[in-house]
């Protein structure tokens, strides 16, 4: 009787909706044939993992122009793998939800070049995220200001020297040379410049 429900847009949907309340209050003792048929139909149409996957309406083109073979497939291969995780990996990120996914595992086999390519060319994507994760696992850090990945190299010096270790920094030059380069002697590490991943 509420005026809102008098809306003609709601007929006959509202009537069907009310019917279901009756069933809820008094469920059938044994499953009627019609219900069994509907249940069967639901089973046949059961949504699968593709139906449940994250929607992608706009396909981002590669973020930086870079030649790629037309023979490479557009879809990423995401096969289900239930191989147990290697317990010898002790980095905390090794035990996160991504370590079990096939993409996460494939990334751990990629070399740095491939990881940087994915990071810079697939911006805003799940793949970029995983590449960043893998780089972090390998000890690289992302600088928010110059958008480069940096790596701290610690070299143990022979005993008897003034210092026990020598620290040098490298960064990956994605804009020009596409190579890892040593940082100049004037490089100063400032923690706040780096993304906490």
């Amino acid at each position: 009787e509420y005026s809102a429900l008098q809306n003609p847009l709601f007929r006959p949907g509202l009537d069907y909706w009310l019917e279901t309340k009756r069933t809820l209050l008094q469920p059938h003792d044994t499953m009627p044939a019609e219900m069994a048929a509907q249940l069967e139909s639901s089973l046949l149409n059961c949504p699968d993992s593709l139906d449940a996957d994250t929607p992608k309406l706009y396909q981002t083109p590669l973020s930086l122009p870079h030649p790629t073979s037309i023979f490479f497939p557009n879809e990423t291969i995401r096969l289900v793998s239930n191989d147990p995780v290697d317990p010898s990996k002790n980095h905390q990120k090794h035990n996160d939800i991504y370590s079990r996914t096939s993409m996460g595992r494939i990334m751990s086999k990629f070399d740095l070049d491939t990881l940087f390519f994915i990071f810079y060319h697939y911006q805003g994507t799940y793949e970029q995220f995983l590449a960043a994760r893998e780089l972090t696992i390998r000890g690289w850090q992302f600088n928010k200001l110059n958008r480069c990945w940096f790596y701290k190299e610690v070299e143990k010096l022979p005993p008897g020297m003034e210092q026990s270790e020598e620290i040098s920094w490298r960064y990956f030059d994605y804009q020009k040379s596409w190579l890892a380069r040593r940082c100049g002697a004037d490089f100063v590490y400032r923690e706040e410049e780096f993304e906490r991943i």
């Binding site: 949907g13 509202l14 069907y16």
Partner: peptide, 16 residues
């Protein structure tokens, strides 16, 4: 309500 109408009208051929 649209969902209810759809399943009520299509019965066994309702697609979820």
């Amino acid at each position: 309500i649209v969902f209810s109408e759809d399943q009520g009208m299509t019965g066994n051929s309702f697609n979820e």
